[in-house]
Design a protein around this nucleic acid. Structure first.
Length: 351
DNA sequence: TCACATGATTTAGC
DNA sequence: GCTAAATCATGTGA
């Protein structure tokens, strides 16, 4: 039996001899043989380890030093190594790399897209998505000023969210690093009295990081929710719908009813109408799209409106001819007197 | 509060 | 890319 095995047996034999709960005769060496002496030594060391945390810091430091210098320390260390070897075998394989969490990836992507995480973008922290939404929502001339005010509000709130997110993230990272360093120091300290491999320290660090990343995920989730609420509050174009002013509606209707045979304004006409109505070309297109479909669905309902605009167009035309000019209008009346027309004569007409 | 009006969005076809 | 058609969501007036 070699020294290590003997020690192992000694350890198992008196394994709990150093336990405070054991009878005194097991803890006191009864002298005589060399083996009994060693039993007592190991029992002493174990006893000291078991009670070390009950002592004051100075006392504990002194004890620790005494333990480290104890003549039996290398032998005990070997025994612990052997036990450790067996234990490690049973837990090996439980530390494979985990694939990245898909939910975390989604949250990261969203925060990046919204400009909350990642490098701060120009224009006060606004995101590409926000810019697109802002561009889509802008345009209604009368509401343009409101839009710019509200978008700056949006950017300010997004910046606020971004700042809170980064502050919290920094706090978590700092706490994580502090805790990791603390645990690593403890483990390194303990590695003087019990066998701890660098791999085990690394594993422990990974466990700590996983715990902290689950906390971080909650932070990311909350941030995403806040951004979604902000977006729907400020940038959902439908929420921003404002009826066009009366003048704009009249200009559009005038064009529509005077082009009833072909109510499809060209790009130039759309631009001119947009300019006149102080709205965007896209809004002009929307308006004509809606108007065509609604007119077609219910011609009867629009009859009166059509007559009114026909009369107005006729008056305008008469005035224009009396002044020898018909310019200054995107409209080219083609239905004077022939109102209302439920069908169109062009190739593209409402059936 | 409700029904209707209306501007915007989505989807599908060409 | 433009349009029709359907749909959504908000504005408005009784």
């Amino acid at each position: 039996m070699d020294e290590q095995t003997r020690l192992m047996h000694s350890h198992t034999g008196v394994g709990m001899a150093g336990h405070p709960g054991l009878p005194p005769h097991m803890q006191e060496g009864n002298g005589g043989t060399d083996g009994d002496g060693r039993k007592q030594d190991i029992g002493d060391i174990l006893q000291q380890i078991m009670t070390i945390t009950d002592q004051s810091l100075d006392e504990a430091q002194a004890r620790k030093h005494a333990l480290n210098c104890h003549r039996m320390k290398p032998a005990l260390f070997n025994v612990l190594c052997e036990i450790k070897e067996k234990t490690v075998l049973s837990i090996r394989g439980a530390q494979e790399e985990e694939p990245p969490d898909p939910q975390l990836m989604r949250l990261d992507n969203m925060l990046l897209a919204e400009g909350v995480s990642g490098p701060e973008k120009g224009g006060g922290g606004g995101s590409a998505a926000a810019a697109a939404a802002a561009a889509a929502a802008s345009g209604a001339g009368a509401a343009a000023a409101d839009n710019s005010t509200e978008h700056s509000d949006y950017r300010a709130k997004l910046t606020q969210i971004r700042q809170i997110y980064h502050t919290e993230l920094e706090k978590y990272e700092q706490a994580c690093n502090e805790f990791t360093t603390h645990v690593m120091n403890l483990l390194r300290e303990q590695s003087r009295t019990r066998p701890i491999s660098p791999k085990e320290i690394e594993r422990m660090v990974n466990i700590i990081h996983r715990k902290f990343s689950s906390i971080q995920m909650q932070l990311k989730q909350s941030t995403c929710e806040a951004v979604m609420i902000l977006r729907s509050r400020f940038l959902d174009a439908r929420r921003k719908r404002r009826n066009f002013n009366k003048q704009a509606t009249e200009i559009l209707n005038e064009y529509f009813y005077s082009h009833l045979s072909n109510p499809y304004p060209s790009e130039e006409a759309k631009e001119e109408l947009a300019k006149k109505c102080a709205i965007t070309v896209a809004q002009v297109s929307n308006w004509f799209g809606n108007k065509r479909i609604r007119y077609k669905k219910n011609i009867g309902k629009f009859q009166e409106e059509a007559n009114m605009y026909a009369a107005r167009t006729a008056v305008n035309a008469a005035n224009a001819s009396s002044h020898g000019s018909q310019a200054n209008s995107p409209s080219t009346p083609n239905s004077a007197g022939g109102y209302p027309s439920p069908c169109y004569q062009s190739d593209r007409r409402i059936q």
